[in-house]
Design a protein around this nucleic acid. Structure first.
Lengths: 114, 114
DNA sequence: CGAAACTGGAACGGCAGCGTAACGAATTTC
DNA sequence: GAAATTCGTTACGCTGCCGTTCCAGTTTCG
């Protein structure tokens, strides 16, 4: 079911959510980090470093570093693949799910204000 | 007119737009820079450094630096206020308007895909 | 007037992400 | 089995944003 937005609504929504993000969070995620996180939680697994790099159109080290940072925050987890031990499978965490739930609430909340 | 979104729609929209941003742009704006830009273009002028800092909940140098960067990109312009020469009025530019128009289109486009 | 209060900006050291180029480990290929 | 390929990671130097502090210019008030 398509969602029809006016230009004013679209930018207004983005404005409200972005502003709230800036005001709330102490440490904000990079645009790339946010994209990676959403990709992991919204697209069916399994997720690998290589796969994410290809999807985002960035190099592998970018993914590795982002996973390092977000891993320390507890937003994601890494596990070696037993079938092919070269691979690393990126796992979701409760903390990460909560983080995105908050983001979703923020979007919904500002959608209502339009 | 409120806009009712489901959690899935909200995150899906954010995911699509963020992903497109990462894939498209060479140099992405910081979350803070984006918030500043949207504030300037969606809220009636005049805009000052101090005012923006208060609105975003950040310090003045953050605004100054963001305006430096975005100024070099042509997204905003700065003019001294003649009434009170301590103030600097932040002006909109054609380039900045175009940038946000693209962002709006991106949001609309991914809204349709939901 | 002179002192106080305001503006925006500059200077400093620090930290995080970047691109490129390598690397070690595991697997596939011949 | 040896060589080539694939995977994720690390190392290097670089750039950009960060918070704090301090500064110069302007206005206001006693």
């Amino acid at each position: 079911m398509p969602l029809e937005l006016t230009a004013s609504q679209a930018l207004g929504l983005w404005h409200g959510v972005t502003l709230a993000q800036v005001r709330r969070e102490d440490h904000d995620l990079t645009l790339r980090q946010t994209a990676i996180l959403l990709q992991i939680y919204l697209v069916p697994p399994p997720h690998t470093v290589r796969g994410l790099a290809a999807t985002l159109g960035v190099t592998k080290p970018v993914i590795t570093r982002a996973l390092d940072t977000m891993g320390e925050m507890g937003l994601v987890d890494r596990v070696r693949d037993d079938r092919d031990r070269r691979n690393v499978i990126i796992k979701r965490t409760v903390t990460g799910a909560l983080y995105l739930e908050k983001l979703g609430d923020l979007v919904i909340e500002h959608g209502r204000k339009l």
